[in-house]
Amino acid sequence: MENAISINGITKSFGEKKVLDDINLDVKKGEILGLLGPSGAGKTTLIKILTGQLSAENGKSVINGINSQKFSGDDYRNFGIMMDNFGVYDRLSCFENLKIFARIYGIKNDKINEALESVGLSDAKKTPAQNLSKGMKSRLRLARVFMINPDILFLDEPTSGLDPATADEIQKMIQKEKEKGKTIFLTTHTMTEAEKLCDNVALLSDGKIVEYGNPKEICRRYNHQKKLKIHLTDGTEKEIPHDENSAEIISELIKSGRAETIHTTEPDLETVFMELTGKELTA
């Protein structure tokens, strides 16, 4: 499948500090790629370079066939950007906030209403943004991106600082966009979000990609323990090696009615990240 985003050898430093070091990534059309890393890993810097807000020292990034350092005019119509720090006009209502951008992109009012509907802000259409909760403001920023109906979405920490229920709602909205065939490049430091949404993840630490691939495959790749965890009906847990004898043990436990649930002990992305970098993902 054709690449929507190609990143080749991107390097960026701020003063002495190398923030991005030879980043290479491809994102296929219709794919969700999650860039996973702790705060300060260089995720936002990479998004800024990809969207033409910053220039790279070395390397090249191509978005929909266009060098991101040479974006101009209508190129911006092809992708939507939701940065964590993008503001909203506090004194204006949700509708008026979107209307500004609708005028810029030549979008009709019914599309504004559709965008507000899609993020569940129809009832707050006339509410000034200053009266919205943090989660609602995030949804408004997301509506601004959805309204443009771009091919590629860059979402920088879309659920950062939100309560689990709101984060879950936003993740569902992102999933819906993927179902429409959109390519999504999202940054996050939440492993559950990455596991839930992303086709592929790139683990970023100190400006370097330390691992790349499908989240489940990565976890399987780092499953050194190869054990099975069995929750027993008496409330205790039993760990057994995942080998040729495990079937027999499990079978006995099931027959005796003692086995309640059986789990593999694959590491999660957090554990993989810790193993690779010695750092916590949420740091």
Partner: peptide, 16 residues
């Protein structure tokens, strides 16, 4: 104010 609240950046990224 637009610089502080990052609304200006949102406009710039919308090709203004």
């Amino acid at each position: 104010e637009e610089k502080e609240k990052n609304t200006l950046r949102a406009l710039m990224m919308s090709n203004v």
